[in-house]
């Protein structure tokens, strides 16, 4: 894995509350190659967003503890001081969020917010920053960029705000963009526009992207690789088409099977019973065991993420199980 752009190794995140400390992710490991688009999926509460925030060094220092390594281009971000982190954040690694309205500053124009990012990292004049900001607005498909430079966030629609967020994140041409549910708050036709913008920019700038979402359809259409998280752990990692056709972890399979779009119309959906355990109720051994239809007594032992040939799976029964994927039984057979 020497050619990886991002190499996350054993990333564990702990939150402190008073004297207590709880572990919210456990030994998360994955890699992203330069220019690669990787999807990070799982239900709410599986640790997707905190993982993204940890990569950005955005978790509150006093109330959280991060162990493990985050290598980006060979440098360990996890070991950096807040000051060193400020120098790379926004320049080499950027992040966009679900709700652009709360991520943008309402009292500055979007042009100022793009220029600010640029001038924080690059030695450019005010005029040059303005020109580059307008160019960034053009790149994300905002019409009349010269006029929009002076617009405030509230004057833009949801889709346009998300485009402005993307422009801020991309103006320094980072190597890695973390997109945390960037289209969840948008309508499906606007979502299609944003996905097209992101895909186009990745291809044009050779930028890698970690696409955090709960929408497996979006992952299928945008990503080449998929990382599934469950209860703070990576449970499966593999090429998107492989996982869609033949998921190796019962949780990945369950997520796919519960999609109404893939089921026979009006048929009972094979839902996953129960819900993601909280930190307090975390089962010993396999964390998915209480919800898993394939659980056996062996699953009471802790599971490790092992090589499955063309990916990684955290399930001791992966060799023997043939799990249904996105295709209906008769098609897959």
């Amino acid at each position: 894995m020497t050619d990886a752009l991002l190499d996350v190794r054993d990333l564990s995140i702990h939150f402190r509350s008073g004297a207590r400390e709880v572990q919210v992710t456990r030994k998360v490991s994955f890699t992203i190659a330069p220019g690669e688009v990787v999807g990070l999926v799982g239900e709410s509460g599986c640790g997707k967003t905190v993982t993204g925030l940890a990569l950005m060094g955005l978790l509150p220092r006093g109330r959280s503890r991060v162990t493990g390594n985050i290598f980006l281009g060979g440098e360990d971000f996890a070991a950096m001081s807040p000051r060193q982190m400020r120098r790379v954040r926004g320049r080499r690694i950027s992040m966009i969020f679900q709700e652009p309205m709360s991520a943008l500053d309402p009292v500055f124009t979007i042009g100022e917010q793009i220029s600010e990012t640029l001038r924080a990292h690059r030695d450019v004049s005010v005029g040059e920053a303005r020109a580059r900001a307008i160019e960034a607005l053009t790149q994300v498909g905002i019409p009349e960029p010269e006029l929009r430079y002076d617009a405030y966030p509230h004057q833009l629609s949801g889709g346009m705000r998300q485009r402005a967020m993307i422009a801020i994140a991309l103006v320094c041409e980072p190597q890695l963009l973390i997109a945390d549910e960037p289209t969840t708050a948008l309508d499906v036709t606007v979502q299609a526009q944003i996905v097209e913008v992101l895909g186009g920019l990745c291809a044009r700038l050779g930028m890698a992207m970690l696409f955090i979402t709960h929408d497996l359809g979006l992952v299928a259409e945008t990503c080449s690789r998929l990382v599934t998280m469950y209860a703070g752990e990576v449970v499966e990692e593999g090429h998107i088409d492989d996982v869609l056709v033949r998921p190796r972890h019962p949780y990945s399979s369950g997520l796919l099977r519960s999609l109404p779009a893939l089921a026979q119309r009006k048929a009972t959906l094979p839902a996953i019973p129960g819900r993601v355990p909280t930190v307090a109720e975390m089962p010993a051994g396999c964390r998915f065991r209480p919800r898993c239809a394939h659980a056996r007594s062996v699953c009471e032992d802790p599971q490790s993420l092992v090589d499955s040939g063309n990916g990684h799976v955290r399930c001791c029964r992966q060799e023997e199980l043939v799990l249904p994927g996105a295709l209906r039984g008769e098609v897959a057979a």
């Binding site: 299609a192 299928a220 259409e221 088409d241 779009a261 893939l262 996105a326 295709l327």
Partner: peptide
């Protein structure tokens, strides 16, 4: 356009449809 914009969780070789991306909002 709505039908084509809906992302579908299928492997790439099975997604034959051409996506119609609407302009504007």
């Amino acid at each position: 356009a709505l039908l084509s914009a809906e992302p579908v969780a299928l492997p790439s070789h099975m997604r034959s449809h051409q996506r119609i991306v609407l302009h504007g909002e």
